[in-house]
Design a protein around this nucleic acid. Structure first.
Length: 1039
RNA sequence: GGGCGAGUGGCGGAAUGGCAGACGCUGGGGGCUUAAAACCCCCUCUGGUGAAAACCGGGUGCGGGUUCAAAUCCCGCCUCGCCCACCA
């Protein structure tokens, strides 16, 4: 405790000794152990609070200063809630499986199990230095077999369940839900009983007399298995992957550059289909969107999740192929089916089904486009087009998604030679293929409405296809377009404009006249045009000649160019849209589509099924076996965990750089492990592993009961602790982790293993801690150690003095601006570090680390220390007295407690700490500081600087930890000032200030203002028209 | 291209319709000290007038608007950051 100075003994604030002492105390006594219900020491009378951090991925670099930002915040909340009398669950663990560990292991040639263990130890040691009040008995790591045993068990649940999307049920909390994951046995029972059948696509058919329905009794064992497998929540499908033979590994889209080469090494990458596990997260799309409404999450995160799920409302419409179908008296007749094919309930043969969000624009569909991979392409392409179509489709297939996107500027495509019939106007329209249509969204085919869609417009221009406007543009849009077309005198704009002008003579004349006067053609020109030509003529011109205007009107508006309501010569049964605003037109056309059987309203989602296999070593093995015929069975629960085999060589296997080589995951080389026999049958284990997300999908549940060997978590404990009341982490997980975990939780909820519909009730995103970096004249990055500060915002290179610019950027090795928390703690202590990070600014803002600011917080710790401890004697300061509190120190205390309490609740720690500064500034000068004021102050300090607070608490004579001491109360009346300063304004300008009793009412304030001599002077000679009095703030005199 | 967020002193930030710049850092001045460190006190948005006290004015990215009153609300623009990106 004692730091000895050279000349005389003083008893300084010795953070190192204090922090070590109290960390040991907490650890030895198990101060922060949180018992589960029923366990010894559990107090059922207290409410619960579950505070969760996003657990770290233990990388080789160790903790950097960004990690503790969120952890400091949750620790403050945790300690505060504990003192408010909550049972608090606050655990920590490690997301220890995953690609970076494997990559690091490959680079350093050390086994990932070894590096992971080492890194976890380093992280744990670093985390403990901060004095976070985790219940360390609950620590877990996702790579621990005792943990992934249950990850595998949950994967088995996915395999052994299906999603009944027609199941209406009431959850225990009373909510009505449509759709529910159920054990696969329930589906089998329905099929076996004959109540349900399947159709040709193996979709479920529930009505007994539906067309194409196949009965269970008439199916072979293999067919039955296929039908069942197709409905499992986890299923196997052929999915294209980015296969890089040279690296011997499959790459994520982001790891492939736009040239189709690997980002690392620049080796060729091939798109190859691979049999992989997929998870039907899409079944939960609707619930993942609607359940967001009741969560206390930042709105931007909710928006991101909604966008990711991408729900849209529209219609599916059938476009029959022209050489197969004709229409007679409103009835569709197929050429070859005799008798005429019945449409009731069945799929249309020889027809293209499209999805659109704008069914109101159906009359403007002048051609169609299929994705190059669309299954119909083969079938409909005419012989003369076959070669071109093939080439195009093949080229598209090789391109990665990224490449396709990168080339998005130029529209490309090929005509198939086939025509389809637009069902609303019975026109023959050509069918094209183009890579701007994606197989993965909607039906993989579109109707092209170049008059109402930007991409279709570009395509129609590129290939000279007809463009029909079906929505009347607004005057605003026409003006904007005109301004763009006539803007300035530049040639390109003018030539675009000339096309319009050629057909509207008055318009041309006006412009020519102005052009001759060398006037500006922007701005006012539009005004002149509007007056000379008239907006109606311009709007009508667009409706007749949209192409001339160079851009499509894609917004909503009034329908045009379709049969109108009042037109007499329209045959019966034709849909009339003209004159209707978009919303009504949509409703009318959908009704028409459904009545005539060529379409229906549908909901579509961008969300895709989740690709769950990775061709990597360092992950959870799949708990499944493949037999020689390809049949898949799950292993028994008693065989879990399926342990990852210890392999000397965990590296990927490079393969020859040919397009037909296939990835060989590292596990395939563990030959003894791979081969399994059961009951005389021979099986092979799945050699893929699960993605890193798997372990983090349910770790918050394992924390509740981490040592349970028989169940992932005790049911009663789960009911007690869930949901997580506060979840803090970085925004980089806004979509994927949080969406996957929500899905996973809902699956467990449906099957009765989780008691809440959502896992994380409140979410908070911490901002990023950035760093300063320096850039010299040539743009090279220079480390801060080589830079001198020359003056205010002026920096120069050490040595030659060349000026450098300071930038704020992410902390990274390449910018040489990473700050190591160990160093800061070594120099100033954990309490100072915690204060600094919390005082930097709002928790959710990104802000730059500036080590220069740290000593200010260190000074605060020292000042607090001296309030209590006499440095000469190492005794409690003589200024600390047992007097009853005087008004000033009492007010300071109540202000402090009020502000700290309110700001902790709002997670505004920077301003809470400002309140602590204010308090210290207020009581430092006092010669006598009452114990009744300083004791509660220590308690209010405890969440922020727990070590210092414990030390002071014990020096004040308490023998027990303050971790469970009741949080100090405050009285708003005692926190209030007796007198306050009021601003006096004349016409909103401050002219004077007065000090007046805080409770002065409006009348007194008004009178005081009018009596003030500066106000009297300012209003002299004018009539006072009005006086606005804001109590406690200001008086504004209007003259 | 779309979505989301941000822009306030030399710096981090405070104030979410009511006194702009709380609190901290940096810098400057002073005190204590043989001296230094530490510590304590004062000043520190800006222009003008003034010896000074003080007084007058401007100011929250830019331009407009609403209001007695705008950093805060509305419209338009600029810059930066993050996420998504041909989603029909």
């Amino acid at each position: 405790m004692a730091a000895e100075s050279k000349e005389r003994k003083t008893w300084r604030y010795d953070f190192a000794a204090i922090e070590t002492k109290w960390q040991r105390y907490w650890e030895d006594r198990g101060t922060f152990r949180a018992p589960n219900p029923g366990a010894p020491g559990f107090d059922a009378s207290k409410p619960k609070f579950y505070v969760l951090d996003m657990f770290p991925y233990p990388s080789g670099a160790g903790l950097h200063v960004g990690h503790p930002l969120g952890y400091c915040a949750t620790d403050i909340v945790t300690r505060y809630k504990r003192m408010r009398g909550f049972n608090v669950l606050h655990p920590m663990g490690f997301d220890a499986f995953g690609l970076p560990a494997e990559q690091y292991a490959i680079e350093t040639n050390v086994h990932p199990a070894v590096t992971t263990k080492k890194n976890v130890e380093m992280y744990r040691r670093q985390l403990k230095m901060f004095g976070f009040s985790y219940d360390w008995t609950r620590e877990l790591a996702t790579s621990d077999p005792g943990y992934y045993k249950f990850t595998q068990w949950m994967f088995k649940l996915l395999v052994e369940s299906w999603y009944n999307d027609q199941c209406r049920w009431t959850a225990a909390d009373g909510t009505e839900i449509v759709g529910r994951a159920r054990p696969i046995g329930e589906l089998v029972a329905e099929l076996e009983s004959g109540r349900w059948g399947v159709d040709g696509n193996l979709d479920l058919v529930r009505s007994p007399e539906a067309d194409g329905r196949r009965e269970w009794s008439g199916m072979s064992a293999t067919e039955r298995r296929k039908a069942i497998d197709r409905h499992r929540l986890a299923y196997i499908d052929e999915v294209p992957v980015n296969w890089c033979p040279a690296l011997g590994t499959v790459l994520a889209n982001e790891e492939v550059d736009s040239e189709g080469r690997s980002e690392r090494g620049g080796h060729p990458v091939f798109r190859r289909p691979l049999r992989q596990w997929m998870i039907q997260i899409t079944k939960y799309a609707e619930r993942l969107v609607t359940d967001l409404d009741e969560l206390d999450w930042p709105e931007p995160i909710k928006i991101m999740q909604r966008n990711w799920v991408g729900r849209s409302f529209g219609a599916e419409v059938v476009f029959p192929l022209a050489d197969k179908w004709r229409i007679e008296n409103g009835r569709w007749i197929h050429q070859t089916f005799t008798p005429a094919y019945s449409l009731d309930g069945g799929e249309w043969p020889d027809a293209v089904k499209i999805y659109t969000t704008r069914p109101d624009t159906l009359f403007g569909a002048t051609y169609m486009v299929l994705a190059p991979e669309h299954p119909l392409v083969e079938k409909i392409t005419t012989p003369s087009q076959r070669k071109a179509v093939h080439q195009y489709a093949e080229a598209a297939r090789r391109k990665s998604d990224l490449t396709r996107t990168a080339e998005a500027k130029e529209k490309t495509g090929v005509f198939t030679g086939a025509y389809a019939i637009n069902p609303v106007n019975e026109k023959r329209i050509p069918v094209w293929i183009a890579d701007y249509v994606l197989m993965g969204y909607g039906t993989g085919a579109i109707m092209a409405v170049p008059g109402s869609d930007r991409r279709d417009f570009e395509f129609a221009c590129a290939f000279d296809l007809p463009i029909v406007a079906v929505v009347k543009p607004t005057a605003d849009w026409i003006e904007e377009r005109l301004a763009a077309l006539t803007g300035g005198l530049n040639e390109a704009a003018a030539s675009g404009f000339d096309r319009v002008a050629a057909e509207v003579p008055e318009l041309a004349e006006t412009v020519a006249a102005r052009r001759n006067r060398a006037d500006d053609l922007g701005g006012r020109t539009v005004e002149v045009l509007r007056n000379n030509v008239g907006m109606d003529r311009l709007v009508n011109h667009y409706v007749r000649h949209p192409r001339s205007w160079g851009e499509a009107f894609v917004e909503e508006g009034i329908a045009v160019n379709s049969p109108g309501e009042s037109e007499a010569d329209v045959p019966d049964g034709v849909c009339r849209l003209d004159g209707l605003p978009t919303e009504q037109a949509k409703r009318r056309i959908v009704e028409w589509l459904e009545r005539t059987g060529v379409g229906e309203a549908t909901v579509n989602y961008k969300l895709r099924d989740w690709l769950f296999s990775r061709q990597r070593y360092w992950g959870e093995p799949f708990p499944v076996l493949h037999d020689e015929s390809g049949e898949v069975v799950t292993v028994g629960d008693d065989e879990l965990p399926v342990e990852l085999p210890a392999m000397e060589d965990f590296r990927p296997t490079p393969a020859p750089e040919t397009a037909d080589s296939l990835p060989e995951p590292p596990l395939s080389r563990a030959q003894e492990w791979v081969k399994v026999s059961r009951g005389g049958r021979r099986f092979r284990r799945d050699v893929n592993t699960m993605p890193q997300w798997a372990g983090s999908c349910w770790y918050y549940l394992r924390f509740i009961d981490p040592h349970n060997a028989t169940r992932f978590c005790d049911a009663a404990a789960e009911r007690y602790w869930m949901p997580v009341d506060l979840y803090v982490g970085g925004a980089e997980h806004a979509v994927l982790h949080l969406l996957y975990a929500r899905f996973w939780h809902k699956m467990l909820f449906d099957l009765g293993y989780a008691s809440t519909r959502e896992p994380f009730q409140k979410l908070f995103n911490q901002g990023m801690i950035q760093g300063f970096a320096f850039r010299d004249r040539r743009g090279m990055i220079v480390g801060p150690d080589q830079v001198d500060e020359r003056g205010e915002d002026e920096f120069a290179l050490k040595g030659n003095g060349e000026p450098v610019a300071r930038i704020i950027a992410k902390m990274s090795k390449s910018l040489k601006n990473v700050v190591n928390p160990d160093e800061i703690i070594g120099q100033y202590g954990a309490d100072t570090f915690r204060l600094y990070e919390m005082f930097m600014g709002p928790l959710d803002a990104s802000k730059p680390w500036n080590t220069r600011d740290v000593p200010g917080l260190y000074k605060l710790c020292q000042r607090i220390w001296r309030l209590f401890v006499d440095e000469e004697t190492n005794m409690v300061s003589p200024a600390l007295v047992d007097d009853p509190p005087d008004r000033d120190s009492q007010r300071a205390l109540h202000k402090l407690v009020q502000r700290v309490t309110q700001h902790i609740e709002l997670l505004k720690f920077n301003t809470a700490i400002a309140a602590i500064f204010d308090f210290v500034n207020a009581v430092t000068p006092l010669a006598r500081r009452p114990r009744a004021v300083l004791e509660p102050f220590v308690l209010a300090l405890a969440p922020f600087v727990p070590h210092l607070a414990e030390e002071l608490w014990s020096r004040l004579g308490h023998s027990d930890t303050l971790a469970y001491a009741p949080w100090p109360a405050y009285d708003e009346a005692l926190a209030r000032d007796d007198e306050i300063e009021i601003a006096l304004q004349v016409c909103g300008k401050i002219k004077s200030r007065i000090t007046i009793p805080a409770d002065a009412d409006e009348k007194i304030l008004e009178a005081a203002a009018l009596a003030d001599e500066k106000i009297v002077a300012a209003v002299a000679g004018k009539t006072v028209r009005k006086i606005i009095v804001v109590k406690g703030r200001l008086v504004n005199v209007i003259v």
